[in-house]
Structure formats: C-alpha cells, structure tokens
C-alpha cells in the first residue's frame, strides 16, 4: 500500500451470485487505475472466499422484481411469479441464466475474478466474528485471503479510505 495513494475498501456482506460482482468489477477497475483496494468479507459475503462455496453461488428468482422473463427470451416486462419461483429447480435455472449471460460478456467466474484481484494487489480479509460464528478457518478460504481480522482491525486498516458497503 502506497502512502497517500487513493484507497477504496469494499465490505461484501452478501453471498448471492449477483451481489458477488459489484466489488469484483469495481475493485478490478480501481486496481487498473492505480487505486489501492481492500475487501472485507463478512456474513454471507464469506461465501465468496469460501473455497467450498465460491463455485456454487446462486441467484434466487423469488421476490426479485427486476428479474423479468425477458432474460429467457420472452419480450416485455413480464415478471417471474413468486409462486413459480419457489418451484424446485428455479434457483438453479436463474443461476444458470445469469452465469450464461456473464460468460457471453467475457466476465470471469467469481473464483477466477478473485484471483485476478489478488494478483493485481488487492488485500482480502475475512471477518472474525462471522468466521467464529460459522466455524470456519483459514483452510476454508481460497488462496490469497490475507487473514481473519476483527471489525476494529478493519477500521484501523482503512483509515482515509473510501468505503463501499455491498
């Protein structure tokens, strides 16, 4: 980390597939522009760095009013009825649709994206309280996670940084 350099810290608190990407995309853009990046994973956000979970992030279609049928090629603003969304397999279907769209755009999967960020110099940390609550250890995390830190540590290491909560 360079003294006086712009620094952006992301707090990732969500583990849904669609909520994995904001920090990855913005963090990568920041690194590309010479900005220091720290990412703190807390609560469900820990799934993004959990090596057993990172390839299985999902997107549920229930109560997601922005997810319309046009993702499946049906024109217009027709939503996915919640009653249909609860059927077995609908979460898997919505997840597959999103993954296919991302792939078509050339967006890497979350695991690969994280590795790019680590290689570009981003610092990744896991939230101690959540780690304790979920019974996880460093062995559960993907390579490149620097450590398990407390909220207080995070506040210390992000002095002067711009903080984005996701």
């Amino acid at each position: 980390m360079t003294e006086g350099n712009r620094h952006i810290a992301f707090i990732c608190s969500k583990g849904n597939l669609d909520m994995a990407y904001p920090a990855l995309v913005m963090g990568w853009a920041a690194l590309g522009n010479g900005v220091d990046v720290t990412i703190f994973f807390t609560f469900w956000g820990l799934d993004l760095i959990n090596k057993h979970r990172v390839d299985h992030l999902e997107l549920p279609p229930v109560a997601n009013t922005s997810m319309k049928m046009n993702m499946m090629g049906i024109p217009g603003n027709l939503g996915i009825p919640n009653l249909v969304g609860v059927l077995p397999g609908m979460t898997a279907l919505a997840t597959k649709l999103m993954k296919d769209k991302m792939k078509a755009l050339g967006v890497p999967p979350v695991r690969e994206y994280l590795q790019m960020l680590v290689d570009g110099g981003a610092k990744l940390y896991a939230c101690k309280m959540t780690v304790d609550m979920m019974g996880l250890t460093m062995d559960d995390f993907v390579e490149g996670v620097q450590g398990i830190v407390t909220a207080s540590d995070f506040i210390d290491m992000t002095e002067g940084a711009q903080i984005i909560f996701i």
């Binding site: 522009n33 010479g34 900005v35 290689d119 570009g120």
Partner: peptide, 14 residues
C-alpha cells in the same frame, strides 16, 4: 496479471 501489474505498476489499464 501479476507480471502485467509489475511491468506497468500503479494502474496498468490506463
């Protein structure tokens, strides 16, 4: 990625 950031430090994209 690592090499690219080493070759063009601090903001390779731009």
């Amino acid at each position: 990625t690592k090499e690219l950031f080493a070759l063009f430090p601090k903001g390779p994209a731009k």
